[in-house]
Each structure stands twice: as C-alpha cells, then as structure tokens.
Design a protein around this nucleic acid. Sequence first.
DNA 1: TACGTGCTTGTTTTT
DNA 2: CAAGCACGTA
Length: 758
Amino acid sequence: MQNLLHNLNPEQLAAVTLPAQSALILAGAGSGKTRVLTTRIAWLIQTGQVSPNGVLAVTFTNKSAKEMLTRLSAMLPINTRGMWIGTFHGLCNRLLRAHHRDAGLPQTFQILDSGDQLAFIKRLLKANTIDDEKYPAKTLMYFINSAKEQGLRAAQVDAYDDFNRKMVALYDLYDLQCQREGVVDFAELLLRTYELLSRNQPLREHYQARFKHILVDEFQDTNDLQYKWLKLMAGTQGAVFAVGDDDQSIYAFRGANVGNMSAFEKEFRVENLIKLEQNYRSHGHILDTANALIEHNSKRLGKNLRTDAGHGELVRVFEASSDIQEAQWITEEAKNLIRDGFERSQIAILYRSNAQSRVIEHALFSANVPYRVYGGQRYFDRAEVKHAIAYLQLMDNPHNDSAFLRVVNFPTRGIGARSIEQLQDAAKQYNISLYAAVPYVAGKAGSSLGNFVKLIEGARFETQNLPLPEMVQVVLDLSTLITHYQSEKEGADRIENLEQLVNAATLFVSEEGFGHDAPALAGPASRPANTLIANDQGIEIIDADAALPTVMSPLSAFLSHASLEAGDNQAQVGQDALQLMTVHAAKGLEFDAVFIGGLEEGLFPHENSSQEESGVEEERRLMYVAITRARQRLYMTFSQTRMLHGQTRYNMRSRFFDEMPEESLKWLSPKIQATWFARPKSAWDEAPESGANAIAQQISKHQTSTGWRIGENVAHAKFGEGVIVNIEGSGSNARAHINFGKFGMKLLDLSIAKLEKC
DNA sequence: TACGTGCTTGTTTTT
DNA sequence: CAAGCACGTA
C-alpha cells in the first residue's frame, strides 16, 4: 500500500483514500486524473473494502478502458480480465447478452454503428415511401438518437407540431423494425439496459448489491441517459466516484450535459468535492494563457491550474497572410523544432476542422516532413471489411436485413433491383425478414435468392465446430469476396484488409479469452455454468459475469467488437512523424510542442457555434483543451485570408486573443499588420503561391475607386472591428460587405457608415 | 451492371 | 475546392 500511495500529492491522496461515499473529483487538464482513478480502484481492493468484481468502472472510449486495465494490472497482482471495466456501451452489451430474454432481445442481437443506422433509416423511409426531402434521414437519425439519449421512447416524446408528430411516428416505426431484425443502435444499448433494470427489480437489486463502488471517467461528457443509468446502478447504497473537468466538456453538441456535474453533487449528496489543480504537464505561460481564457466562461464550477514547472517560454503567436503561408510557416517552424532536438511524434498540429488539414499536409509533404493524420477511416469501416462482416452477421442472425442487402448481390450473383423489390414486398406482406421471405419469391429470382440462402446456411453448417479465425477464413472463401477483388484493378489493398480480418479474429480470441476449444456457436446449454441467483419470484438470474465467453458465442462477441470498437484510426501510433489532428481528437493527449492553427473568427470559434453564448463557451473550452495539450512550447496562428468551400474568406483574428494575457504572448508578426497587400510586390517573396498574388492585385483595384479595399481592417462605432470582405458599386454608391466577427456580416453604405481605418 | 456526369454540400465525433 | 451521391446512359 505504501507503494500504491506514494508519490501522490495531498489532493490526489485525499481523493484516492476517500471513504465509501459518492464523491466528485474536479480534475484539471494534466492533473493526474487517470492515475487517481486507477489508484483508487487498486486501493479499494488492496485494503479489502471491495473485491475486484464489486467494482464497476465506466469510461467513454475503449482506449481509456484499456489504459485503466493496463495500469491496474501493473499495480495489483490480480487478473483484471474478469473485472467490470469498460465503456458504457461495452458494459451494456455484456448485460444485454446475459439477460437477453428479459430484455426482449434475441441472443444474437447485433449492433448498428452510425453508418449502419443511417442506411437503416434510409431504407425505412424508402420502404414507407416517405419524402426524404421533407424528412431527411439524417434529421430523423438525430431525432431518434437524442430522444433515446434523454431516455425517451416514441410514446414519451412530446410532439407539438405536425413535423414532430411525423418524426415520432417514424421513431416508433424504426424501433419496431429494429426489433424485427434483431438489431440495436448505440443509444439503444443504453436505453434497453436502463429499461431492463428499471422494470426488473430482482435484477436491479442484484447488480446494485454487487457494485458497491462505481467509478466514472470523463464525467462531464455523460448525457442524460448515462446519468440516469448511473443513478439506477448505484441505487441508494452504491458509492459513485465521478472524475471530470467541466472546463473540458466539448461534446455538448452530441448530447453531453455538463449540468450532470452539479446535478450529481446535489442528488448524490456529495460531501467530498476535491479539486485537482496541480498540473504536471505544462509550463507557466501556457497554463496562465489557458487559465485566463477559460475565466471568460460564465458557467464554471471554478478551478485554476497551477504548476511548479516555472514560467517557461512565452506562447508564440503568428499572423499569416494566407492559409498557405500559415501552413508553410508552421512547416518551417516544425523543422526548426526537429533540428533543435524535438521528437517528431512530440509535435502536434491541431485545428478546429478537418478541412484545414489539407493545406498543412500539402506544405509538409512538399517539405518532406513526415506526418500522420489522425481520424481517417477505421478498419472495421472499410467497405470490404463491412462486406465480410455482413456474411458473418447473416450466419449469426439471418434476420438482419441490413447485412442481407449489403451482400445479397455482392459479389454479383444476378440478384438485381427487381428481385429485391419482389422480396421486399413478400417480407412486408408477411411481416418477416428478407431472409425469411426468400421462399415466398417464385421464379428465377426465387432460385437465385434461394442459392444465396443456401450459401449462408452452408457456411453456417461448415463452420459450426470451427474456432473463430478458421470460421472467418471459410467465410472469406465461400463468399468469393477475395476472388472478386482479385479481378479488380485496385483490389490488392482490399484483399490485404480482408486477410487481416483473420488476424483480427485470432487476436480477439486470445485477448478476450475464448479458448480454442470453445464451440463456435455456443448455445445456452453448452456454456459454462454461470452464477445462478434464486430470488423471491423464483426467477433464475444468470449473472452477466464479466468474461465474455460466459455470455456470448465467439462469433457474436467478435461482431459486437467490430461494431463497438471500429479499430484504430490512428495508423501507426508512435511513429516518428508529426501528429495532425482536430482539437477534439487531441483531448487526453499531450505533446512537447503544439501548433494551433486557424485562430480566426468564424473558424475558431466556429461560426455555427457563435449564435448562442453556450456555443461560444463550448468553443472556448475547446480552445482551453487545445492550449493545455502543450508541455513546453505552444504556437497559435491565424491568417488574413483563407480558402474555404472554393472561395477566399477574410476573417478577423479570433476573439480568444483578446482573452489571453498579453504578458504570456509573444507576437512573432506585427499585431496589426496594417497593409500587407499594399506593400510592393517584392514583399511577396514569402508567399510563393501565385494565387495569393492574383488576389492581392484584384484587391488593390478597388482601392483607388472607393478609398477602401477588400481585406482592410475597419472599426465601426456599434459593431467594433471588422474586415471588408467585398465591395460593390463605386464612388458614392459603393457598399461594402464587412465581417464584424461576432456581429456577423453587414452590408454598409461606404458613404454613410462612419468607418475608421484601423 | 458498370461507369460517367452533374449536383449538392460542407464543425467537432465515441460508441 | 473536392467528396460523396443520385441519376442517367452504354
């Protein structure tokens, strides 16, 4: 124990050793949050306050769940495999598999990822001949997901107008169809579990009694349903140890509710609110900058990071004339850093939106600087992999219409749109799945469809006693997917990805503890004995014991894994290359040197978020996250012109610059560069792109006729500082489109409006 | 059924 | 600008 607790600072120690009551830990960026969480679990177990299976630890990402397990096994000599540490979704999946009958689901229910869900909804709309102009699939998907995330079924949603009534009706239809096919979406995993435990008292009490200690990571990111879920799990006796940082809540746009933190404080009668404010990551000026910025948010629980690391270097600010120049400057500066001994993988370039990466990539590529872009396509999202998965899905649950439609004619086997239509009619008539409707289709179409069914049945029969990896191999062969891609000119990568699936299955089997002798399609009878709990009503409860093999077959488990963990999208982690990613993707990471690009009004803060104050506050938190990624050096850049959606935009520098302490910033370029375009052409040496020159020439034409020029900074009595974006007309009729940042775009008459140059 | 063309539409994203 | 998609033609 001495070992466990040593090296903790007083606040961390206090948090780790809190009594068994609910507690809220406000953990600032870089304050050792994960360490506190894992040490707390280890301490509870080591001091005998709880057994490993009495702990429930919830995270948002598979990555942090894995991280927690790794750290924990390093601290304690226990087998962590059986422990209930995982994502909300992963844990719910496990519960629903074990209690599928009580939850009203088939044992082999399958999980729709967001892509599947969208396709599913499109299909639903088409089948019901709904005008998708009026009711777009994406809107409906958002509607359904946010309803579920609030814990609401269609019948409970308040529909106040015709549009909403229609959405509610479609939501209801959607749920029915999911049920028919035996599929659940992400939100459904949580809602189903929540409903199961709400209605099933013995089950609820069983788990409440089991989980004495519930620990939640990134609590600020919980949505309403997750909060209710936690409340239900905890019951009256469970102690919830919630760790979070309200200043790093950046997912409100997808339903996260920071308000859960203060709600938690009240509803769980938190007596212990501990703030971890000692930062072990960033140097002083960086931290001061972050602190000053976040001070501008009104709704905060209040917290200020401090460091012992000393002031360190000033935060460098650079104003570029164009996005291209910005990228080139970042590239040059990164090269200097590497020359000075920074590791490439310790340098990050962060941006608000993915579209910004292109220009930067171009500059890096031209300069031969290796880089890695995070957030690309994930392994299980690739079309060829999805196809292979669909075959496996059909073998495990043939009623999954999405899987059926994906591969019924892929590779092509003469089943065209007409045959599918016939099949869909039959399925609709008898209210059954497409697969089950095959026998009802007559003629040639019927026989090709019948052959497809035989293919699936054959694959199922042939693989029923095989271990998972061999099963995957057989499916790849029988489906002729590989043969198909062999005849395609650019199929080599795809074939490699498909062959990779066998490896993925092998890895999965060994990691999740499915022995090689485990039956491929384990039915209830063939499963190892589970903990049986008798209750008053005489209902038998099979405890969803932590190890996956006890609650589902290797195939079902592997398919869940494919949906819940789409795989790495951060190809070759740790490779010696610059790290490019969005600020969102950077959350939780840290680097020696960080560049934050595109700090302009409209981009960061993003224009779509600037309408409401709460939107700007979230952007500010996002900026706070970005700043606090840096250990010793931080750069912030912005540009006077930027190419977006094929047209040049003139943005003002971000308001965030006015919210950061002047004394911590070092402007590498003049703060207000009065007239970069008025300079003689020779000044353009640094901007070799001829496009920029063309823009400058175009701009200067206007100057003579109106006395104002595009791109000029102006000040207005009411709207403050702005940038002239366009000028129309000439002489006394001239009017200008001016971007006033937070006041938006205005069209002003140049002879009337009192504008000042600035 | 495969491919080409023209049109729309652009934040952030884990599970 | 450029990617993704719906639609039309060979």
